[in-house]
Write a protein that binds this DNA or RNA. Structure first.
Length: 593
RNA sequence: GGUCCCAUAGCUCAACUGGAUAGAGCAACGGUUUUCUAAACCGUAGGUCGCAGGUUCGAGUCCUGCUGGGACUACCA
């Protein structure tokens, strides 16, 4: 199967050469707008300087040349300098027949690119449960990993767990003070939520101590530094770093609770990882690199003994990479882990960090430092930056209790899916297990699609009422279309080949075939841009087209056997593409719903 | 103060990276089911693409300025 653009590039280059003696010029194509007749459009304005004739005349001349010289082209029309080109139906039909039985449409063979990419996502803290912001991160990371795999890359999904630090000590301390030995088992509270509860508890205690100190005449800033409970948390962190047995024991216990909780949430979200990293193992990395960088004069020592790099020539500021007491800061660790990963995976071509856009600056600095340290792969580090998730009432603030909890959200979506499905009553014969599966599929489909259809770079508004809507541009609408196609196909026992020489493609069928044709390049584009929203928009377009086709034309009711079998094949192929596209978003599609 | 990001229909988002008359969904109104799943389909209405300049054959898209919103700017993570 020849590529449409390749064919046209070659033919039109020949035309330009023959007609105007023009060589090597970049051609500008676009899909023909629906209001005009044609499959693909050549924009001729940029050619007129060389052709020396008007856009319309240029377009007409090229069109005429194509019609007589390129056998695959049926006809053309010219509108205001746009050359709309139509390929023969035979061409589209041949294309369709070449893919109709391929269950992997749009997917390149695994590892065919020879490229290995590590994609880090999720990266939670172990002091509180996952919330809506993490959900976007997880869904985005997982989907991009799928998309990159579909582009033939080998992808290592990595998760760097922030399992240490002052914030973890806060939960630990509050539990020690007020926990009375409470455990997930004794309380029936999911582990990550239990630990989160004590993180909030710490904040309460801390605040009341601050108020007390302020009442005693201290300034707010002083009080924040002097509150006994914060001092104790800092002591606890020091003990942790020294390996104090009791502190380590408590740390392991409470982190264990959190991991049990996360495991459930990850399973419910349907995300997974190939490689787990823990900051308790990596937080010391990078110090030797700093020493090395000092020798290379990439870094310099300041008067107070801290080590820094000056990035003011790059439009950035001075950045401390080691404190004056010799301890590392966050970026020290990031430098170390990046280098470590390229050592661990020598075949690694690219390292992608899925992290919110509030850290744009951090990653600019990080990549610049790696570059200055002389690592050639620094250019292959990429920050997959995404916008914040906001609620109709504004930003999520844990202190004000406006955070949308991931587990609560999933439960709520599940219940809505169950309610709606029961009301429609189409699967009343399902067993309890089948219903449970279906509700999970639909609720997750709704949530994932709702989040992934927005360009990752942009901040998004999460309106709970809209997220559980199952009509219109939603995951369940697309899932429904898939189920509907499958329902039609189930009704036919003898699925027969059709004689393509007897098929006349109608307009909507041609639109569908052209859209199926686009899938491959859409997957490529989504991969190049790390953008699942491109897949979402695409699959929605295809689904809308199919539904229109379904309403306008008979499939199994069609009397002409050849046409019937052709339409069945077209339907089946749509179902495959819908399923494949949704798969790239991490969304399953049901056989019935 | 400095750096960066965002602004498109009442609301939520698109616009193939500079191309034709800026498109969908939701919400509103009207229509479609004895016929393959109505979680669907069709129609009506809704726009000074934040504002003002500039670049060019052509700008929602690029450049400048302004307004409004946000993020970052730690020897925090």
């Amino acid at each position: 199967m020849q590529n449409v653009l390749q064919i046209l590039n070659i033919s039109i280059s020949k035309a330009l050469s023959a007609l105007y003696e023009i060589q090597n010029i970049e051609l500008s194509f676009q899909k023909t707008k629906p209001d005009f007749e044609g499959d693909i459009t050549l924009v001729t304005f940029n050619l007129t300087k060389l052709t020396k004739v008007s856009p319309d005349a240029t377009a007409t001349a090229i069109g005429e040349y194509l019609k007589t010289h390129e056998t695959l082209i049926e006809k053309y029309n010219v509108v205001k300098g746009f050359l709309n080109i139509s390929f023969k139906n035979e061409f589209w039909l041949n294309y369709f027949c070449s893919v109709k039985d391929n269950l992997n449409i749009g997917f390149k063979t695994t590892n065919s690119s020879g490229k290995t990419i590590m994609l880090e996502y999720s990266s939670p803290n172990t002091n509180k449960p996952l919330h809506l912001g993490h959900v976007r991160n997880n869904l985005l990371g997982y989907s991009v990993a799928k998309i990159l795999s579909a582009n033939g890359h080998k992808v290592v999904k990595a998760n760097l767990v922030n399992d240490r630090g002052i914030h973890i000590c806060k939960s630990m301390l509050a539990w020690k003070l007020n926990g009375n030995g409470e455990t997930p088992q004794s309380s029936g509270i999911k582990g990550d939520h239990l630990v989160g509860k004590y993180y909030v508890e710490f904040d309460k205690l801390y605040k009341s101590e601050i108020i007390k100190l302020v009442n005693e005449g201290k300034t707010k800033e002083e009080a924040e530094k002097l509150a006994p409970i914060i001092l104790e948390a800092q002591q606890m962190l020091l003990k942790w770093e020294k390996g104090d047995a009791e502190v380590i024991e408590l740390w392991k216990t409470m982190n264990g609770w959190v991991y049990d909780g996360f495991k459930q949430t990850y399973a419910n979200l349907g995300v997974e990882f190939d490689k787990m990293y823990y900051e308790s193992n990596t937080y010391l990395l990078g110090k030797e690199i700093v020493a090395d960088g000092l020798n290379k004069k990439v870094f310099y020592k300041k008067e107070n003994g801290s080590v820094a790099i000056d990035l003011s020539n790059e439009g950035l500021d001075e950045k401390i990479v080691l404190r004056s007491d010799g301890t590392s800061v966050y970026i020290t660790q990031d430098i170390g882990t990046a280098i470590e990963r390229f050592k661990e995976f020598p075949e690694l071509n690219q390292l992608i960090y899925t992290v919110g856009n509030e850290q744009d600056y951090h990653f600019k600095v990080l990549f610049k430092i790696l570059d200055k340290l002389g690592y050639a792969w620094a250019k292959e580090c990429y920050h997959l930056s995404y916008g914040m998730v906001e609620l109709p009432e504004g930003k999520m603030k844990s202190r004000e209790g406006t955070v949308v909890d991931a587990d609560d959200l999933l439960t709520e979506m599940y219940n809505t899916a169950a309610k709606t499905t029961a009301e429609l009553g189409k699967v009343d014969d399902f067993s309890e297990g089948e219903l449970n599966e279906l509700y999970k599929t639909i609720s997750l489909g709704a949530l994932k699609y709702f989040i992934l259809k927005v360009d990752p770079k942009k901040k998004m508004l999460f309106n709970p009422a809209e997220s559980i809507d199952f009509n219109g541009n939603t995951g369940p609408f697309i899932q429904y279309t898939h189920a509907r196609i499958k329902s039609v196909i189930r009704k036919v026992e003898n699925f027969k080949e059709f004689d393509k020489s007897k098929i006349e493609i109608n307009l909507i069928e041609k639109e569908i075939i052209k859209t199926i044709y686009d899938f491959e390049s859409v997957v490529t584009e989504a991969g190049n841009l790390y953008n699942p929203a491109i897949i979402s928009n695409y699959v929605y377009e295809l689904t809308k087209l199919y539904n229109r086709f379904y309403h306008e034309h008979n499939i199994i009711r069609e009397e002409n056997e050849t046409v019937k079998n052709y339409r069945l094949a077209l339907s089946k192929t749509c179902a495959t593409v819908i399923a494949n596209a949704m798969n790239l978003l991490g969304i399953n599609v049901p056989e019935r719903m």
